[in-house]
Amino acid sequence: MAGEVNGKTTIRILLVDDEEEFVTTLSERMEMRGFDASVAFDGQKAMEALKTRVPDVMVLDLRMPGIDGMEVLERVKKTNPEAQVIILTGHGSYKDEEQARRLGAFDYLQKPVGVDTLVKSIQKAYQQKIESAYAAEPSDESQSPQNRH
């Protein structure tokens, strides 16, 4: 769930990649842009992180040791379907993109990606999450997504 800092909504993101320097640096840059970012260095650790803190948006690499990104995506969409997943990978096969989108990935980005492109994608994914949550709730016309967040 998104948290609040000084009354402002902060989007919780989980960055998952086995390239530790990449994901740590990206996490710092995301923090500087107001996101509440955490990192996991492989699929197993990402699944463990989900038990304690479900992110609004997960940015996930595909090729990782142990549980690979595609399997993490599949599991996340079963256990925490509300979490949006953006694939960020150096592996550019059309087949992978097709499979990731079929499994419910919100976006599929290629490394290296511009930070502004990633930020925009995260914001759109978060918006999608809010809209999905609103659509899933019992009808209550007095509340709109904007009122609640």
Binding site: R29, G90, K111, P112
Partner: peptide, 24 residues
């Protein structure tokens, strides 16, 4: 070659993020 280009992309991504952080 797919394996190696993946490695190149990772290297470029790290360089890009590190340079970007310095810029920030």
């Amino acid at each position: 070659t797919a394996n190696l280009t993946h490695e190149f992309k990772n290297i470029l991504a790290i360089i890009q993020e590190s340079a970007g952080l310095m810029e920030d």
